[in-house]
C-alpha cells in the first residue's frame, strides 16, 4: 500500500488535481452545450434522445472530476492530520492512564492531557490527578485520551 503524500502548500491539492478538475469540468460543459445544440437542431425525437444521452455523459464526466477533486482533498487533509496526530495503538496510548501517570494541564486550557501529549508540548504545565482536573471543570483531551 502506498503512503499518502501530503501536498505542501497553502491548499490540500496539487496542480495535477486542479488540471484534472478543469479538464473534466470543461469536457462536461462542452458535452452539455453540444447536446443542447444537437437536440435543438432536430425535431426527431429519437435523435434528441441520443443528444440527451450525450448530455448525461457530460454530467457523468464532470461528476467524476468533482468526485476526484473532493476525494483528493479529503485524503490530503486526512494524511496530514494523521501525521500531526497519529492514531494511538491499541493497548498503549489509547488505554486509560493509570493512577501513577501524571496528567497535566496549563493555564487557559480547558482539557487535561497525558504528559507526553503534543497539545501541551512546550507549555508550562502543572500535574494533578484526573479527579482533581475533573473537579476543576476540565475535560479529557481528545488527542491523547487520558480516559479515566
Amino acid at each position: 500500500m502506498s503512503t499518502p503524500v501530503v501536498a505542501a502548500g497553502p491548499v490540500p491539492w496539487r496542480l495535477a488535481n486542479l488540471l484534472v478538475l478543469w479538464v473534466t469540468l470543461a469536457a462536461g460543459a462542452t458535452l452539455l452545450v453540444l447536446a443542447w445544440w444537437g437536440a435543438s437542431a432536430t425535431a426527431d425525437q429519437s435523435s434528441q434522445v441520443a443528444w440527451i444521452n450525450l448530455g448525461v455523459c457530460g454530467l457523468i464526466v464532470a461528476g467524476v472530476g468533482i468526485t476526484a477533486w473532493v476525494l483528493s482533498g479529503r485524503r490530503a487533509v486526512g494524511a496530514r492530520r494523521m501525521l500531526l496526530f497519529p492514531d494511538p495503538s491499541p493497548g498503549t496510548d489509547a488505554s486509560p492512564a493509570d493512577e501513577s501517570e501524571p496528567l497535566v494541564t496549563a493555564a487557559h486550557l480547558t482539557r487535561y492531557h497525558r504528559s507526553g501529549c503534543p497539545m501541551v508540548a512546550g507549555k508550562r504545565t502543572r500535574a494533578a490527578s484526573a479527579a482533581r482536573h475533573r473537579a476543576a471543570g476540565l475535560e479529557p483531551c481528545g488527542v491523547c485520551r487520558p480516559i479515566q
Binding site: 447536446a35 437536440a39 435543438s40 426527431d44 440527451i52 448530455g55
Partner: peptide, 8 residues
Amino acid sequence: AEQNPYII
C-alpha cells in the same frame, strides 16, 4: 420535440 432541449 420542443421539450427535450429544455431537459438539457
